[in-house]
Design a protein around this nucleic acid. Structure first.
Length: 376
RNA sequence: UCCCCUGUAGCUCAACGGUAGAGCGGGUCACUGUUAAUGACCAUGUUAGAGGUUCGAAUCCUCUCGGGGGAG
């Protein structure tokens, strides 16, 4: 792939560069999620200061509000949101799943929120695409591969994702087989509808079935320039297995993105197995909910009363603005007081943490000491 | 000095005479292509105190104490 260069390998872990119209993404890397054209609580200025190289926005949310036409009128997402570095958009396929179907079937990703709620929306999957109701006002929409790709073209992200189908991990082999076949057909239609120079990921599915993952991976590699792995839920061990099934099936020189993952441990697990890119809401959402990363692998729950008078920064080893200037006690106070500043400072720290983690990992791979870093 | 109101969880307040609940607050946990500044769970009380009436009192009566208001 001409836009992706692998610079060095340490085992299966690799360091590379993904070149986009808005700049280079050093890999492995982590995309903060900015669903509605904003990383919650952070400005593009913050993101740049931290050293974030790419953010992920969402087709589904933006098509509903403010609408792809409007964003196009403003010259695309980059200009609209004031971010001139790389952007990736998701296809919207996942939302169709997470907002409707998943709840109906109870995916493990959504389980834990109580099975009784909320009632499923009337999302209907046909060969053509998906009919669904807006979570904003209940109005009906149809999303097809063609439409998703067209909207993503209007949004103008550097990296886009083919429209894919999702099945819950609880589904049977047969149901999953039908699903990956549909994802294939939608993938081909996505390719056909693709008329820009945006780099498009195809999505590997197949749940926890090895043969389906392999099959889906081969197809994706054959047809797409970039590989995304989707539909991963549940336990870490399974996640590792799935990656181990998929990676050998795809070309070395194509970038590999693990959709929706992950936590610190997942980054190590993924990179060790040859994954280049990750996106996840964890650092931003966790920050808002009072859970903050501490080097090397702890998570601090700021709500605990033991931090009430704690003068230490979140992470004594962290060099970020938040840790340089504020105590745990102060941040805890802001949290309980409901101050907006809490969200800004906490999110800043968590994104800084992830961004630097991935940077450290890149350095380690370059120096062939990935495993050593992992050990710490 | 007299009259009226009032005293229930940390706070604000519920509970036809049938052995106390809510909201907020507090605590613990969760959060993986964001419907998430979200959610789940837990908890605390000699119902100001002492008597009395009653099968049964936070609830009715008496007194004491603490608040609030009014009249002198």
């Amino acid at each position: 792939m001409k836009n992706f260069k692998i610079l060095h390998k340490d085992g299966k872990a690799r360091v590379g560069e993904l070149i986009t119209p808005h700049g280079i993404i050093e890999t492995p890397n982590f995309n903060p999620v900015g669903t509605q054209a904003a990383v919650k609580a952070l400005s593009p200025k913050d993101l740049k200061e931290i050293g974030v190289q790419i953010v992920l926005a969402n087709t589904y949310h933006l098509m509903l509000r403010p609408g792809a036409d409007l964003i196009e009128k403003f010259g695309g997402l980059h200009k609209f949101m004031g971010w001139d570095k790389p952007i990736m958009t998701d296809s919207g396929g996942f939302q169709v799943f997470s907002l409707g179907i998943a709840l109906e079937h109870g995916s493990s990703k959504v389980v834990g929120k109580g099975d009784s709620e909320p009632r499923p929306r009337l999302n209907k999957i046909t060969e053509d695409g998906v009919t669904f109701q807006s979570h904003l006002d209940g109005s009906r929409y149809i999303l097809t591969p063609e439409k998703s790709i067209r909207i993503q073209a209007q949004l103008g992200a550097d990296l886009i994702v083919a429209f894919d189908d999702h099945e819950s991990s609880k589904h049977t082999h047969d149901e999953m087989l039908k699903s990956i076949e549909l994802t294939k057909r939608w993938g081909l239609r996505s390719l056909k509808a693709h008329k820009t120079n945006q780099l498009m990921y195809g999505v590997v599915h197949g749940g926890t079935h090895k043969d389906l993952r392999v099959r889906s991976a081969k197809f994706t590699d054959k047809n797409f320039e970039a590989i995304a792995i989707g539909g991963i839920y549940g336990d870490r061990q399974k996640l590792c297995e799935i990656i181990d099934w998929v990676v050998p099936q795809v070309s070395e020189e194509k970038p590999r993105h693990l959709l929706g993952i992950g936590e610190v441990e997942d980054l190590f697990n993924g990179i060790e197995r040859g994954i280049d890119l990750f996106d996840c809401v964890a650092p931003t959402r966790r920050a808002r909910n009072g859970s903050l990363y501490v080097y090397p692998d702890r998570i601090l729950n700021l709500r605990q009363s033991r931090f009430t008078a704690d003068k230490k920064p979140i992470d004594p080893q962290c060099s970020c603005y938040t840790c340089a200037n504020f105590s745990r006690a102060y941040l805890r106070h802001l949290f309980f007081a409901g101050e907006i500043l809490y969200h800004q400072l906490a999110t800043y720290h968590n994104i800084h943490f992830m961004t630097n983690l991935v940077k450290d990992i890149r350095e380690a791979i370059k120096e062939d000491r990935f495993n050593k870093l992992r050990g710490t």
